[in-house]
């Protein structure tokens, strides 16, 4: 049962109070690309891939659909020249970190992103925060967190906790869009428990 309706790409879509545009679109089978969204987690709004154009009361603006609450009568466009251009830039920026990440490669094809547009970065992490938030919000283990800010931001396992819980869990590994997470865990493990020669 839906509470009210809005329009996405010309389709009339029913939604319930409190749902986001992304949720409304997903239920209606309309695809919006996402990288930091996960249905079990609080909206994060970090990757900005899910950006869409909304028109309400005669004004158009760009918003991220994973956060923006669906409103009655809203007109949403999930693609436009500008949206595509922004998504392409975001992909090119992330591919400076993780040029071979399968989800990025697939999206790059769709949006014509060039993985070599910008100078490469040493870290593979794209800071989607899925691992950190999953560990915190779903597992409540707090084994992995972010450190530092801005361009120096990184993920970091807490060795004492990771040693106890991660081996039996590893549920965040498949969430990571890059190969970074597992590698970092393996490193943490080896530093925390160096095998005695």
């Amino acid at each position: 049962m839906s509470d009210f309706h809005l329009e996405i790409d010309g389709n009339k879509v029913g939604v319930k109070e409190g749902e986001t545009i992304l949720e409304a679109a997903q239920q209606a089978g309309i695809y919006i690309p996402t990288l930091c969204h996960h249905e079990k987690l609080e909206p994060f709004g970090g990757c900005r891939m899910c950006i869409v154009e909304v028109e309400s009361r005669g004004r158009t603006k760009l918003v991220v659909s994973c956060v923006y609450p669906a409103e009655a009568g809203l007109v949403v466009r999930t693609r436009s020249e500008k949206i595509d251009r922004i998504r392409k830039t975001i992909l090119e920026l992330l591919m400076a970190h993780a040029p071979d990440s399968p989800p990025l490669v697939a999206l790059a094809k769709e949006y014509g992103a060039n993985k070599d547009q910008f100078e490469k970065e040493s870290s593979f992490c794209i800071h989607c925060g899925l691992c950190v938030r999953y560990c915190e919000e779903v597992k409540k283990n707090y084994a992995v967190g972010f450190v530092d800010r801005g361009v120096r931001k990184e993920i970091s396992f807490i060795p004492e906790i990771a040693a106890k819980v991660c081996n039996d869990c590893k549920e965040c590994f498949p969430l990571c869009p890059t190969s970074y997470l597992q590698a970092t865990f393996v490193l943490t493990e080896s530093l925390a428990f160096p095998t005695v020669p």
Binding site: G45, L93, L94, A96, F146, G150
Partner: peptide, 21 residues
């Protein structure tokens, strides 16, 4: 601003990083 970006979202964190370079 690159130094002060919180690092949460991509256009700012990564975009400014590349602009600065």
């Amino acid at each position: 601003l690159t130094d002060e970006s919180c690092g949460k979202c991509v256009p700012c964190r990564e975009g400014l990083r590349q602009m600065h370079k």
